[in-house]
Design a binder for these strands. Structure first.
Lengths: 232, 232
DNA sequence: TTTTTCTGTTGATGCAAATCAAGGTCTGCA
DNA sequence: TGCAGACCTTGATTTGCATCAACAGAAAAA
């Protein structure tokens, strides 16, 4: 790994609070890989050989069944994926592919498991990461089981707006068909749901969204902390 | 805590591989509580004051939104719940109530967090438990997003049969309306789905189920390891 | 016991969302 | 510049599931 790559990697949230010398010993066994867009990085059912950390680009986490496919989440720089499979030494439950060209840090699974046993700070960082991921999925399961398509979209818009600064102006960060899959609906339904938000003063042109009346949208969406608050 | 209670607690999977003296020091701050059926043990949105471990009885984990409610899972003896909230010192994302009278071990959250930092074996046990729980929710999310009601029921029957010994004879371990909520459907839909399984030689009388033709049911359900295999 | 309440089934109906189909728009590329 | 192939939208139709309603049977309470 090149020296300036190393510099970048040390800053990753996963290594926060972990001793510098230990981070470096982990990184010595790791490598950074570039992948073109649309390449499958991980396939569900395969043994978990690596822990992946995104350095650059967007990664879609998805899963398939029969001829169907659904997006579980879309991750960006700083996010890691499949910690649980690595820790338990089992197969991946989800697949992953880059939506853009990506730069990915790959940590050999065995080194991560050893790290968990040897360095308490690293163990804590892994556990915190996993706990956050766990709560994320629980929220998503509640989102799916308790809400209609329109409610999911409305709440996504509000949450995403907040994440992008809360100005009422936001960009959908990926294709609409990916968003539809993430929200658990067919692309056609997303199109129609967007149209259905017109009375709530939501304007969508391409990927750019303007929320002209946040109060109206809020009264439809009715977000609650235990589903929608990312800091909760 | 009484001495024979202590004996029971030391056997819990959560303490497997953890030094006996450390387990005892944890248990000194803990207590075992009995609750009558239908009592709410934990309410979503409340701060996580305790880690709960089921000693006896069944506990329904559920969540609400507006006037709706859904069952996330039903847990039994040996299972713990809300590790992630305790570890992160955040609020519970789900509520819990006993379906039967229960006996619950309650570990103060602060002690658990200290334990994670102080005892590497306990930290590992917690992390493994959390990783398994995480993978369970991921599977459930896939189950919800990728399958129809009928497919979910068919796969549940197969998995539950395997869990109960694989004899083709099984008992539904709780009310059908709880099962319906767990499977993400209205009780009426469960009734009709059961009727729809008649051509597949599934016989249901009350809570007792007989699978007369597992092959036929398998061809409908089409289970896959990354959703249905509990050991994966 | 009788009465009441709860659980589960069945029928009728309405709605949400998937599917099928066609056309328009944008993008990358020859 | 023009074409091929995406992405997205809109319309028509079907399907899956929820809802409403009524009732039977079982369990709990009087």
């Amino acid at each position: 790994m090149r020296e300036d790559d190393l510099q970048d990697m040390r800053q990753l949230p996963l290594f926060e609070g972990v001793g510098a010398s230990y981070v470096d010993s982990l990184l010595r066994n790791a490598f950074v890989q570039r992948f073109p867009a649309h390449v499958e990085l991980v396939h569900e059912g395969d043994p978990a050989d690596f822990l992946y950390v995104i350095v650059q680009g967007q990664v879609e986490i998805y899963a398939g069944y029969r001829d169907r496919e659904t997006t579980i989440s879309v991750l960006g720089p700083g996010n890691s994926f499949i910690i649980a499979a690595v820790l338990l030494d089992r197969v991946y439950l989800k697949s992953a592919r880059g939506l853009t060209p990506t730069r990915i840090l790959m940590l050999p699974a065995a080194a991560v498991r050893e790290g968990f046993a040897e360095d308490a700070h690293f163990a804590r960082a892994l556990a915190v990461d996993m706990a956050l991921a766990y709560r994320g999925v629980v929220k998503e399961l509640k989102n799916q089981k308790l809400r209609s398509s329109l409610e999911r979209l409305a709440n996504w818009l509000i949450t995403e707006d907040a994440r992008q600064g809360g100005s009422g102006q936001l960009e959908i960060p990926y294709d609409k068909k990916i968003l539809a899959s993430r929200l658990g609906m067919a692309p056609e339904v997303l199109s129609r749901s967007i149209a259905a938000l017109l009375p709530y003063k939501v304007e969508i042109r391409g990927r750019h969204v303007t929320l002209h009346d946040r109060e109206a949208l809020l009264s439809l969406a009715r977000p609650i902390a235990t589903i929608d608050d990312p800091s909760c």
